[in-house]
């Protein structure tokens, strides 16, 4: 999985590409943790190019949300493909994450 980072107006966008599963979940968690240490607390996770997510990937998002919340920030999810959104719904985590149609909508929600 690729992680591209972009920072605009104190909001960090992490654009993910590929499969977010047990082979890549740790990389996402470490990326968010390192940015939190640099005092970045508001994140958009752009998942438009993620075509698969499993419970390990979802677990890394939950863990990241928890650590960001503790620092007074938030994580917004954007651009989910319908099939990936179905996995959020299967695991009920669409009720936990704020999910937006696109990055602009996510950015204006902060």
């Amino acid at each position: 999985m690729e992680i591209l980072e972009e920072k605009i107006n104190k909001i960090v966008t992490l654009k993910l590409k590929g499969h977010l599963d047990a082979s890549s979940a740790k990389a996402l968690k470490e990326k968010v943790d390192s940015l939190v240490k640099e005092k970045c607390v508001n994140f958009i996770i752009d998942m438009g190019a993620v075509d698969f997510i499993d419970s390990s990937g979802l677990g890394s998002l939950v863990s990241s949300l928890r650590s960001v919340n503790k620092s007074g920030g938030d994580i917004k999810i954007s651009s989910l493909q319908n099939k990936v959104r179905a996995i959020f719904e299967l695991t009920r985590l669409h009720r936990v994450f704020e999910i937006h149609e696109d990055r602009n909508a996510a950015a204006t929600s902060f």
Binding site: D54, S55, S56, L58, G59, S60, V62, S63, L65, R66, N69, L90, T91, R92, L93, R95, V96
Partner: peptide, 23 residues
Amino acid sequence: LEVDPEDLENIAEGGRGLPIIKE
């Protein structure tokens, strides 16, 4: 798989694999 969105501290990071399979 049920979660309480207001109780983030108690939302598990793991343990969803078998429930997903059975679902």
